[in-house]
Simulated assay, not measured.
Amino acid sequence: MKLISLIAAAFLRCTLLLLLGVVLLIPTPAQADIVTLTAADNGKQVQLNVGDQLIVRLPTISPRFGWRLTQTYPGQLTVTTTHSLPGLSSGVPGAPATFEIHFQAVGTGGLDLALISAQPGTGYSSLGGFFRVFVTIDKPGVAKNVNVTEYGNHSSVKVNKGDQLAIRLDNTAGSQYQWEVMPLADNVIQLIQPPTPQPAKKPKKKAKAGSEEDVTFQFQALNPGKTTLRFLYRNAANNEAPPKRDFELEVEVPEPPK
């Protein structure tokens, strides 16, 4: 009888160990992260994964005032909630109130996330009524399109091998000045599409001389490394004239995970 009890106990232990091993082998789904930004993060680069939440907290002079997005980001970032709270930490000591906006990362890509004070000139803090961060959203095994505007001048961006990188710069239709990309001395990224004008308004009609339009340069990340993209806004009719303005972007392509 004692022998039967010992055998039963041993069998029970083996069964429990086997079940435990099966449970440990079952992969657990990755949990989404929550990333919180304050005024102190102005100008920084933020890395998210699809499914992550992004919270931006910015100071205001009272709960009646807030911040608004300069544009929407369909297919990438979705606004879930917005509200103003008194006394919540905003990255600026002593701020009377804080405006808080929640986002959900829903798709891959890279974007300039820019907000301006809802009441220009009344923003509280050294932000001067403008807040900007550069956001990249990844999903394992999926290439993404990264879009950088002129707000990203003199900043940096990280893209993966195979990603598309679009640089959109402000231009004036009919002007003698044109954007020119400086030659790249490495094989980190390459220009895959010449600049294409994109009128800001009424794209079906030809842009009138003197009106604003965007010019987009399309690149692709080829190999791991670091490089600098540089553009000059030059007078096409006079190569000796100094450039009117420039645009620089530090680009990093990290080593792919092994």
Rank of each mutant, 00 (worst) to 15 (best):
71 Q>F: 01
67 W>H: 01
11 F>E: 14
213 E>I: 06
71 Q>W: 02
157 V>T: 15
228 T>D: 12
217 F>V: 00
161 K>F: 08
216 T>I: 14
204 K>T: 11
222 L>M: 12
110 G>I: 02
177 Y>H: 14
3 L>A: 11
53 Q>H: 11
258 K>L: 12
54 L>Y: 06
153 N>Y: 02
32 A>Y: 03
251 V>Y: 01
149 T>L: 04
26 I>V: 14
13 R>D: 14
245 R>I: 06
85 L>Y: 12
26 I>D: 03
241 A>W: 08
177 Y>D: 09
241 A>Y: 08
81 T>H: 15
184 L>P: 00
8 A>P: 11
235 N>P: 09
258 K>D: 08
20 L>N: 13
100 E>A: 06
161 K>T: 14
98 T>P: 02
202 K>Q: 09
110 G>N: 03
128 G>E: 08
10 A>H: 09
218 Q>N: 15
223 N>W: 00
190 Q>P: 05
90 S>W: 06
10 A>Y: 10
109 G>F: 05
224 P>L: 07
202 K>M: 00
95 A>M: 07
118 A>S: 15
231 F>W: 08
237 A>E: 15
25 L>N: 03
66 G>P: 05
201 K>M: 09
227 T>C: 07
61 I>S: 07
76 Q>S: 06
187 N>R: 14
130 F>Q: 01
139 K>D: 01
257 P>H: 06
45 Q>T: 12
216 T>P: 03
251 V>S: 00
132 R>Q: 12
193 Q>E: 13
253 V>A: 05
217 F>C: 07
56 V>I: 13
25 L>R: 06
187 N>A: 14
142 V>W: 00
238 N>Q: 13
179 W>P: 02
155 S>C: 02
43 G>N: 10
72 T>I: 01
91 G>S: 08
163 D>I: 03
130 F>W: 05
80 T>F: 07
247 F>Y: 10
211 S>A: 06
232 L>M: 12
15 T>P: 04
183 P>N: 05
57 R>C: 10
156 S>Q: 06
37 L>N: 07
105 A>T: 05
251 V>Q: 00
99 F>L: 01
241 A>H: 11
100 E>G: 00
169 L>C: 07
99 F>E: 06
2 K>I: 11
191 L>V: 11
117 S>L: 04
185 A>H: 13
158 K>A: 00
132 R>H: 15
237 A>H: 13
82 T>A: 07
212 E>D: 14
65 F>L: 10
258 K>Q: 13
62 S>H: 04
62 S>L: 03
16 L>G: 12
243 P>V: 06
102 H>Y: 06
